[in-house]
Amino acid sequence: MKFALAVYGAPYSSQAPHTAYNFACSVLQAGHSISRIFFYHAGVLNASSLAVTPQDELDITEQWSKLSRNHDVELAVCIAAALKRGIVNKEEATRYELGQFNLHPAFELVGLGQWVDAMISADRVVVFGK
């Protein structure tokens, strides 16, 4: 089966990122596929490359990155939700004349349409609320 997942919660404000990550691993272990993981609302903060995780905790951004690399899962971040929360890639930093950018390279900024597209082409949709 094909799954599409949405993560609405931010690291350190909600358990959603960790729950979603563990669930995603189990989906893949069971032989199903994940077409896209969509980070929306405060969930966009999962994609910051500037968060420094305490050594005894799981670096969730790095885990997402590994999952994406090993299983070819797309990590899609809602561009509108991201920009207003300070998650920016190089192109957007240039466009808005910002001095910095911080989107982790494993993630991609996309429009909301990408989520609707993932949702309607999946067999199952699971939302991880904050």
Binding site: N22, F23, C25, S26, Q29, A30, H32, R124
Partner: peptide, 9 residues
């Protein structure tokens, strides 16, 4: 979590 996946299926 593997049981959770089964519930989703």
């Amino acid at each position: 979590d593997s049981g959770w996946v089964d519930l989703c299926v």
